[in-house]
C-alpha cells in the first residue's frame, strides 16, 4: 500500500480538482483521505454517503462554575491567552480564545474552574462514486487542533486500506506549511506538489518544498495554468530541475476546471480532451514512481 499526498502551499491552484481526478482514475484501488479539514471540498465532487460519522474531541476548554467563584482573579492573572475576563462582576471564559492549557483550573483556590473536552470537529467514512471509500472531516469553527484531526483521518484511511488490501491512499493535503501540513506529510511515500505560474505560486512552492525536504519524501510537481505566465513557468521548471523534483505534467488554463465543479464532476468525467489526457499521463507517472 502506497500513500500519495497532494499539497500546494498556495490555495486555489487546483489541488482538490486534480486529486479528485486521480481518485476517479484510481477507482476502487484508491482510498481517499481529505485532509484539507479546514476547508474540505472534495466531498462536493465525490458523492459521499456519510455512512459513518463521529464527533472528534481534542484538547480542552476551561469553564467557570460561577456559584463557587470568590472573584479572586487568579485565573485572569495566569491566563496568557486573554481568555478570562470579568463581566458583571463574574469571571467568564471566552472559549474561542481559550487554548485549554488548564493553568487557571490549577490555581483556582475553590476549584470552581473545570476543564471540559472540546468538540473540535466531526469525521466521516463514506462510500464514494469511484467505487471506493473516502475518509473526510469537518473542523469546528476556530478549532486549533487541525493537525490531530488530519492525523485521525489519515490513520483511519490507512487502516481501511490495509484491511481491504487497497493499492493506494490518496491524500488531499491542506494549504500552508504549519501543523496540518506537517501532519498530512508524515508517513507519505510520494508528494505531489501542485503549483501555478505566478509569483505567489513559485514563492509558496519553494517554502512548502523546504518542508517536504525535511521529511525526505520523493516529490513530483504539476504546473497548473502553465500558459498564463510562460516566464514564471520556466522559472518553476528550473527550480524543479535544481531540486530533482519530477516534473509530472503541465496543465493549461482551462475553465473546464470550474465547469466540471459546477456539475459536481471531476475533470476527467467532464473533459474528454486535452485535460483528461494530461491528467491521465500524470497519474500513470505517479503510479510508476511509487511502484519503484
Amino acid at each position: 500500500m502506497k500513500e500519495i499526498v497532494v499539497i500546494s502551499g498556495k490555495g486555489g491552484t487546483g489541488k482538490t480538482s486534480i486529486t479528485a481526478s486521480f481518485a476517479m482514475m484510481g477507482g476502487s484501488d484508491v482510498v481517499v483521505a481529505d485532509c484539507d479539514v479546514d476547508a474540505a471540498d472534495m466531498h462536493l465532487l465525490m458523492q459521499p454517503d456519510f455512512n459513518f460519522s463521529e464527533d472528534f474531541y481534542s484538547g480542552e476548554v476551561a469553564f467557570v462554575d460561577q456559584s463557587n467563584c470568590i472573584s479572586c482573579g487568579k485565573c485572569e492573572d495566569v491566563c496568557r491567552f486573554d481568555a478570562i475576563s470579568v463581566k458583571k462582576n463574574l469571571y467568564v471564559v471566552d472559549p474561542l480564545s481559550c487554548e485549554g492549557c488548564g493553568y487557571c483550573a490549577r490555581v483556582c483556590p475553590t476549584k470552581t474552574i473545570v476543564n471540559q473536552e472540546r468538540l473540535a470537529g466531526k469525521w466521516f467514512i463514506s462510500k464514494i462514486k469511484t467505487g471506493s471509500i473516502m475518509v473526510h472531516a469537518r473542523l469546528g469553527i476556530g478549532a486549533d487542533n487541525s493537525g490531530k484531526l488530519v492525523a485521525k483521518v489519515k490513520n483511519e484511511a490507512k487502516e481501511i486500506a490495509m484491511e481491504e488490501r487497497k493499492g493506494f491512499i490518496l491524500v488531499d493535503g491542506s494549504p500552508g506549511i504549519g501543523c496540518p501540513v506537517v501532519s498530512s506529510l508524515s508517513g507519505a511515500n510520494f508528494v505531489v506538489l501542485v503549483t501555478e505560474t505566478s509569483v505567489s505560486g513559485l514563492h509558496d512552492l519553494k517554502r512548502v518544498y523546504e518542508l517536504v525536504k525535511k521529511f525526505n519524501i520523493k516529490a513530483g510537481c504539476i504546473i497548473n495554468k502553465a500558459d498564463v505566465n510562460p516566464e514564471k513557468c520556466s522559472e518553476i521548471e528550473q527550480f524543479l530541475k535544481e531540486n530533482e523534483i519530477v516534473h509530472l505534467t503541465d496543465l493549461p488554463y482551462n475553465e473546464n476546471f470550474t465547469r466540471a465543479m459546477v456539475k459536481g464532476q471531476t475533470i476527467v468525467e467532464y473533459d474528454h480532451g486535452e485535460l483528461k489526457e494530461l491528467l491521465n499521463d500524470g497519474w500513470e507517472k505517479i503510479k510508476n514512481l511509487v511502484a519503484n
Partner: peptide
Amino acid sequence: PPGTSCLVMEATK
C-alpha cells in the same frame, strides 16, 4: 490566512 481555524480567528478578531 485562508480557512476557518484558530489562525483566522487570531487574524480577524
